[in-house]
């Protein structure tokens, strides 16, 4: 091949995201470029640990990555607005919102160091615990819960849990060894990272939170491509591919939940948490606290959040 792209991500090679999304993307690029671009995928963080993947792309240790914005605290605060409670109910809808915010230029500055291809979110995140059944916020007391990003940390803190920062791939070992009592993750990840084998209880709080993802490329690597190959990459970027990633997440969420059901786990569903007096103050407090904090730093968080709500009610339903 004329160009080899080293594509690094942290999902294990057996997961749906690797096989149905990134491998599909790679094959499609290879076909569309008539074999002139070869994509070598490096799953399971073999080129850089999960939090270091973005820097690895800047330094061209990897040519491109699929990673989580929030694993580096403080770099993508406006994009992470999409993670706030109440916004995301499916991956399709969350991805539509995030990609639109980027396309409209509201969050694009945060990605200046790399060449983003597409952004997406996972489906709604839930709480999964080893043994403690969570029915109300007071059940969180003293539990150590793995959380993906700062947004979710303040949410869990508000609920009375002790949040522990940890990339998803480390969660299995941590939960197995008792470092944590539970995790905040979508159903898809419970399957991808084998956590359904450890958790016995799951609590679905509608629209609790979501997580922002990106697929992004080293700027120089993109710039060095000849125009016709740039066009191939461009055709594998944007809203269309964002939606395809979301579709895989949504499909996998259903599969992950089915496994837990089949294993006879406890599944608690709290409908209308946004209006439930036990949950509402925490959810709203998290949103307000996050937005106020960013505004104090001079970032237009409220404008971005307002636009996200508009999109959620409008074309991203």
């Amino acid at each position: 091949a004329e160009v080899t792209l080293r594509f690094s991500h942290f999902w294990p090679a057996v997961t749906g995201m690797h096989k149905e999304m990134f491998q599909v993307w790679a094959d499609s690029v290879q076909t569309a470029s008539q074999g002139r671009i070869e994509v070598e995928i490096y799953p399971s963080s073999t080129l850089a640990k999960a939090p270091a993947q973005y820097d690895a792309v800047i330094d061209r240790i990897a040519d491109m990555t699929a990673t989580v914005q929030g694993y580096t605290a403080g770099r993508f605060p406006l994009s992470q607005v999409v993670e706030l409670p109440g916004l995301v109910h499916t991956a399709a809808q969350g991805s539509c919102i995030l990609q639109a915010l980027y396309d409209e230029g509201l969050v694009a500055d945060e990605y200046a160091e790399t060449h983003p291809l597409f952004l997406f979110t996972h489906g709604p995140g839930h709480i999964h615990t080893r043994d403690t059944v969570i029915r109300a916020p007071e059940d969180f007391a003293g539990l150590r819960i793995r959380r993906p990003t700062l947004v979710v940390a303040s949410l869990l803190e508000g609920l009375g849990a002790q949040p522990v920062a940890m990339p998803a791939p480390q969660s299995f070992q941590a939960m197995e060894r008792g470092v944590i009592d539970g995790v905040a993750l979508p159903w898809e990840a419970m399957e991808s990272f084998r956590l359904n084998e450890l958790a016995g209880s799951h609590t679905e709080v509608g629209g609790l939170y979501s997580l922002a993802f990106m697929v992004t490329m080293n700027k120089d690597v993109y710039a060095a491509l000849p125009d016709d190959l740039k066009a191939v990459i461009d055709a594998h970027s944007g809203a269309d591919w964002s939606a395809r990633a979301a579709a895989v997440f949504d499909r996998r969420d259903i599969a992950g939940r089915a496994t837990a059901e089949k294993a006879g786990h406890t599944i608690v569903t709290i409908d209308g948490a946004a209006n439930d007096p036990a949950w509402k103050p925490v959810l709203e407090g998290t949103t307000e606290g996050y937005l106020a904090h960013l505004e104090a730093d001079g970032k237009p968080a409220r404008a971005v959040h307002a636009r996200a709500l508009e999109l959620a009610a409008g074309r991203c339903q």
Partner: peptide
């Protein structure tokens, strides 16, 4: 296999990543 610049970046980053590994 890759290039000199990335190799040096990898050499600089990897020790800190490994030494801070909770495991």
């Amino acid at each position: 296999v890759v290039a000199a610049g990335p190799a040096v970046a990898m050499l600089g980053a990897t020790p800190f990543e490994s030494l801070a590994e909770y495991g």
